[in-house]
Simulated assay, not measured.
Amino acid sequence: MGEEYLKKNKILKVGLYIALLFTLFLTGCSNSNSKNDSTRNLKDSMGHEVTVPTHPKRVVGSYLEDYLVAVGVKPVVQWSVKNASSTQEYLKKDLKNVPTIDYSLPYEAVTKAKPDLILMGTDSQVQNGKYNQYKKIAPTYVVKNGTDVSWRDQFLDVAKAVNKTDKANDVLKTYDQKLKSARNTLDKKAANKSVAVVWVTNNSAFIVSDKSSSGSLLYGDLKLKEPSLVKEVSKKATADWSSVSLEKLAKLDADYIFLVNSDKGADMFKDPIWTNIKAVKDGNLFQYGNDSSWQYKGPIAYTQMIDNVLKDMTK
């Protein structure tokens, strides 16, 4: 009787031990799967292997805010210049109460933001050892960029990094429907009309490149006619906006001009050269301020610009 009891007791202990090991094994697998589910491995545009959060909560994406907001991600800081005096005002409602960060992204300011993911919009932002510094703060992903990268490609790459590709595709579908409708309207009411975007600040004029910012929308997406001066400036452009003299603007034969006016009291507006520019003389000059989307790019900016174009060109 005693031996049988001991034997059964021994078998019970062994069984409990095996059950305990099995439970620990399952727990380990569960923890491992949970860990794997919480991160994803991506390769960025510069070839960095980056382990990013599956659902990032605190994203720094300076000058990529349009893309982030469009897919429902509110960044923890927003791009600014000149001690926060200049921000992307057209996103003001979407970025309400979001603190600013200088466009140069100082390490201390980025660290203070406590990001769990840092998105960089250009290769130059992480050159000269900067990448290694930023990745010490949080996983750092350089999105597609460069003259050969369209805004759509960049938008989709940002969306991939924050795990919002499906949402981005929905945004583009809606945008393309709006674009198709706008093209049809413009073909009927403003066929073969040429347009240009001029930015005036500090009594100096700039023309947007045909592949950047609002130029990409007007000449690429909307297929509007590009004036010869814009083509000439774009061939030599090294930035989104190129300086152009008032004398050169005299050759601007655009039917319509969209003016981003950052200097309402500029002397150049009183100059006969300016007042005799074709679109100005014909009353087809449409002014927008720094709070507009005309200096930026992205589905939100472009949607607003399409509305502006339709309002001004189809009266």
Rank of each mutant, 00 (worst) to 15 (best):
V171P: 14
L218I: 04
S245E: 03
A250Q: 13
K35Y: 13
I137W: 02
D255M: 12
G289T: 01
L224H: 10
K135F: 03
K43D: 02
S262Y: 06
A205Q: 02
Q88C: 00
T54I: 02
N36E: 12
T111H: 13
S216N: 15
I137C: 02
S124N: 14
I300T: 12
I11V: 12
S30W: 08
N97T: 07
V230K: 03
Q127A: 15
I101W: 02
T51Q: 14
K93L: 09
N276H: 13
V59T: 07
N41E: 12
A190D: 09
S80T: 08
V142T: 15
K10A: 14
S124T: 15
N83C: 07
V309W: 01
L259F: 00
L246Y: 07
S293T: 13
N145Y: 14
L95T: 04
I277F: 03
V149Q: 02
A113S: 13
L259C: 01
T87C: 10
A191Y: 06
I11K: 09
Y107N: 08
D221A: 14
V71A: 08
V59L: 08
K135C: 04
D282H: 11
L16M: 09
A301C: 06
G146A: 01
Y63C: 04
E3K: 01
N202M: 08
G283E: 03
I273M: 07
D271C: 10
L26H: 10
P139D: 11
D187E: 12
K178M: 11
T23K: 04
L246I: 06
D312V: 03
A138I: 13
D282N: 15
V208M: 00
L179W: 06
N36R: 12
D37F: 04
A191Q: 07
L20Y: 10
Y90K: 00
T87V: 15
S80Y: 03
T275A: 09
I257F: 04
D157Y: 02
V280I: 07
V143G: 11
K10R: 13
